[in-house]
Amino acid sequence: MTETARPYIPAMGRHWMLFLYDPFARATRLSRVHGELLDRAGVRPGQTVLEIGCGPGDVLLQLGRRVPDAKLIGIDPDPAALRKARRKAARRGLEITFQLAYADRLPLPDDSVDRVLSSYMLHHLDTDQQVAALREVGRVLRPGGEVHVVDADGTPHQGSKRHRHPRLAGHTPDRIADLMREAGLTAVTENGHGERPVIGRYAFVRATA
């Protein structure tokens, strides 16, 4: 049964801006950040990987080329983004399952996933939704499975007390790590950071089920 639709923030922040996603990703070389995330995730052939908030599917498309024998699943609440992701996968001949779902209600059984990925999605959720989503991540991960997150780093710049985007206020790597611990995940670590034009600063945080 499909869950009743509820409000969400789409990949580009506005539904009508979805057509700008690919040009934006090319201009900012977002694929390099995705590549860094995948380097850290260390997916192996035969593993099952879930991306929460997959949007137009670019992370899983890159992973499908890297590890063609992995089972890849992407969920997102945006039907338009999922249609775009399916078209991209079909053009590349990649078998990826894209499903309409919310991060705090994952349509997967317990202990069924080896890796969970999240790219620039967590800050789209309110705090209670973030914890609920990370609890769901812990539920679907197999024992010893890992979640790898890359997200904007809302740490104020030196000399500034505010971030340019209100949703990033307080959204720091330490805060993400605290949310992971609150959700029951373990071995939580910040394992890298970077900065790119337009995108700004970003950080990687990982945890284990």
Rank of each mutant, 00 (worst) to 15 (best):
T2Q: 14
Y8C: 00
P10Q: 01
A11G: 00
R14W: 02
W16E: 15
M17R: 15
Y21R: 01
D22R: 13
P23K: 01
A25L: 07
A25N: 09
A25Y: 00
R26C: 12
A27S: 14
S31D: 15
L38A: 13
D39Q: 11
A41D: 07
A41V: 03
A41H: 03
Q47A: 08
Q47K: 02
L50P: 00
E51Y: 02
G53F: 01
G53V: 06
C54G: 14
G55T: 04
V59H: 07
L60P: 10
R65Y: 05
V67K: 06
K71Y: 10
L72Y: 09
I73Q: 04
I73N: 05
G74H: 03
P79E: 15
A80F: 11
L82D: 13
R83L: 14
R83V: 09
K84I: 00
R86F: 02
R86E: 15
R87M: 08
R87T: 07
K88L: 09
R91K: 15
G93D: 11
T97V: 14
Q99A: 13
Y102I: 01
A103W: 11
A103D: 01
L106R: 12
P107A: 11
L108W: 10
D111W: 11
D111G: 08
D111T: 14
S112T: 12
S118I: 12
L122H: 10
D128F: 04
D128Q: 14
V131I: 15
A133L: 05
A133E: 02
R139Y: 04
P143S: 10
G144C: 06
V150S: 05
D151L: 05
D151S: 08
A152R: 13
D153P: 05
P156T: 09
G159I: 00
H165W: 05
P166S: 12
L168Y: 03
L168D: 10
H171I: 01
D174M: 06
M180W: 02
M180T: 12
A183E: 01
L185F: 02
T186L: 10
T186Y: 02
A187R: 10
E190N: 10
N191R: 08
N191L: 03
N191I: 11
R196S: 06
V198C: 03
V198P: 09
I199Y: 04
R201D: 06
R201H: 13
F204K: 00
V205R: 02
T208W: 01
A209H: 08
